[in-house]
Amino acid sequence: MEFTDALNIEILRLVDCHSIDLVYAHWVGDIHHDHQAVARASLHSCRHVPRMLMYRSNWYHSNLDFRGNFYVDITDFWTLKEQAIRAHVSEMNRTGEKWIQFFKNEAGNAGQRIGVKYAEVFEVVKWLES
């Protein structure tokens, strides 16, 4: 995946076609090349979308800090999230249960910060209420 005009145009087309008003994007500090490209394209192409949140999607360290400042209680949905993670077969084959445990620990730590069992944390790019 590369940050190109073609990618930007496709994202713009999808935003317009579906009247998207909330975007979840990879965090721009992610060290995975594809994730960075999509994050940059999302920031560029979704600049007129009123709400945008970024998320960390892997366990690799970066030289940038993820500034998680928007929390969602996912306690009732942890099983569904785990199923979604397990659907990423190539990563499950590569990492096994370590990947599941990492994300469960992350959700537990985020939940502890806000007083629930499990939470998802995002970095707010913008959040416009109308």
Rank of each mutant, 00 (worst) to 15 (best):
R40W: 10
V28H: 04
S42D: 01
R56H: 03
Q101T: 11
N58R: 00
H26G: 04
L53P: 03
L53F: 03
Q83R: 14
V23P: 06
K117L: 11
T4F: 02
E123W: 02
D76H: 14
V116F: 07
Y118R: 09
F70N: 06
Q36Y: 10
A37K: 05
A87H: 08
Y118T: 12
R67F: 04
V49T: 08
V124E: 06
D34L: 07
L22M: 08
S57C: 15
W127C: 05
N93R: 14
R13N: 14
H88M: 04
F103P: 03
Q83V: 08
G68L: 02
L7D: 05
L14V: 13
A119K: 06
L12S: 10
L7T: 01
W27D: 06
V38A: 13
F66N: 07
H18N: 14
V124P: 00
A110S: 15
G68S: 09
T79R: 11
V38Q: 01
V124L: 07
W27E: 09
N109S: 12
K126E: 00
N105H: 10
N8S: 08
V72S: 06
S57P: 01
H18T: 02
N69F: 01
V125W: 00
A107M: 07
D65Q: 09
E91V: 07
A84F: 07
T95S: 13
A37W: 01
R86C: 10
Y55E: 06
F70D: 00
N105F: 11
R94D: 10
Y55R: 08
T95N: 15
I20W: 01
R67E: 09
T95K: 14
S62V: 10
F103V: 09
W127H: 09
Y118Q: 10
I20L: 14
W27F: 02
R94L: 09
V121C: 11
F66M: 04
N58V: 09
I31Y: 01
W27I: 04
Y118I: 12
I74F: 10
A25S: 15
F70T: 02
M54N: 09
E91D: 13
I74K: 06
D34E: 12
Q101K: 12
Y55S: 07
L80H: 13
D76G: 14
F122R: 04
M92K: 08
R13F: 11
M52V: 06
T95W: 15
L12A: 11
M92N: 01
N69K: 00
I11E: 01
N109P: 01
G115K: 08
V38T: 13
D5H: 09
K117T: 13
V116K: 05
N8A: 02
